[in-house]
Design a protein around this nucleic acid. Structure first.
Lengths: 227, 227
DNA sequence: TTTAGTCTAATTGTCGACAATCCTCTCATT
DNA sequence: AATGAGAGGATTGTCGACAATTAGACTAAA
């Protein structure tokens, strides 16, 4: 269900394939966060020329998974607490706005479809109570569809194209098996209700609170760990 | 005053220089919006190899000034009304949030400095009453500094790195000699007062209204023209 | 006249080699 | 011992050529 999530145009060129492979390996931590990227080494590993690899690196940089410095090279981004919280802030602002727009722009049919998906998540949740992984995938799925519903191409590009995989990376590497699953599910329902009521203002507020609550949950958890 | 605006790391490599040159030419319209980009042609024009040119194209794509399709090529983005309004929406969300953060994060000294800058703009405005150009530059300057003041690197990257020049492009090509100069100046003052009062909530609201007012102003103007 | 198909020319993607820059280790000097 | 200069090795940036794909023109058939 999630595999069709990204705004993916089927990888046609070989640089596309290398890009997707590396993207997955970075997100899942097989290429370590913060590690230096050696162009000759990776070119050999994937059996492509350095030009092709560099093309892939350029796209990884576009979705904020690596950082480049001239004449020095590329590094995988580090997963810091500060960075994670910064992303939540950006998401709060952008997804809140997306939600407001979606309340105006989404078709009735789209809303109905999303309601069905959400109901499906609810059943899965009941069945697999406590197992948060699917809920997490479902969470991304819900957010993804609301963003698409905004019908604002800039917004969609930034959230689904440039930030999406960075969010996934943090989820993977910080192992977020949210204890908020149940509450998050209810919040999703409330947000969708506001959208269905065409109440953009309320929808934005609920989405912002929803994301802010996740952020504060992380802050609290990390605070505890440091004690 | 504006030339030091972008988060520019001095261009060290030749691809950097080509990138900056093309960036300027696209923003100012010397390379026409919507036009197709011929790699061989431009490589000859700038006297560099295609590899170097493609490196520059990759960065232009990062700041949303061109779009690429696999096996087809690159085009300069088109300046459409829809696109312009979409950007205003994104800015409303992100700069509003930046403003909220700035109210907490900016140092007293930074705030004082910004107050002086704003006062300077006020004098210029009085002197050159009606001439909106400097005010427009000043507008970007003000927004830029507030964004920096948020101290959120993700936010700064998106707004100052990826969207900044696209905004400039629209300003250039739609010829926005704002009749809102006076009002915008007053709004800036109110925003800065809220920041100085450390009232993040108010600061966000004022910034959002400020940007939304600009957007509606554009909508109104374009609506009139179409009649 | 229109449409389908094919062929040619041009453009983009990929490759390997060379040039320029940076990092590190060594050695000399204070 | 600490600091600085310099050489060596490795990495990144740039180049020109080849391969793969696309766009456009031309022909032929319905």
């Amino acid at each position: 269900m999630n595999s069709m999530n990204p705004a993916r145009q089927a990888p046609v060129t070989t640089a596309d394939k290398i890009f997707e492979t590396m993207q997955r390996e970075i997100v899942e931590g097989q290429i370590l966060a913060g590690s230096k990227i050696s162009e000759p080494e990776l070119a050999k590993k994937y059996q492509v020329s350095r030009s092709t690899l560099r093309e892939a690196l350029n796209r990884l940089e576009k979705c904020h998974l690596i950082e480049r410095k001239a004449n020095v090279g590329s590094r995988v981004v580090e997963c810091t607490v500060k960075g994670l919280l910064e992303i939540y802030i950006v998401r709060e602002a952008l997804e809140g706005m997306a939600c407001r727009l979606a309340a105006s722009a989404m078709q009735d049919a789209e809303i109905a479809e999303l309601q069905q998906i959400l109901a499906g998540h609810g059943q899965e949740k009941q069945l697999q109570d406590g197992v948060a992984y699917y809920q997490e995938e479902g969470d991304l799925d819900f957010h993804y569809r609301v963003i698409q519903g905004s019908n604002n191409q800039q917004l969609i590009n930034i959230l689904c194209g440039e930030l999406y995989h960075l969010v996934r990376m943090y989820r993977c590497q910080f192992g977020m098996n949210s204890p908020r699953a149940t509450r998050a599910f209810d919040e999703h329902k409330a947000i969708l209700n506001a959208i269905a009521d065409r109440d953009g203002e309320l929808a934005e507020m609920l989405m912002r609170r929803h994301i802010a609550a996740s952020r504060k949950n992380i802050e609290r958890k990390l605070e505890q760990e440091s004690n």
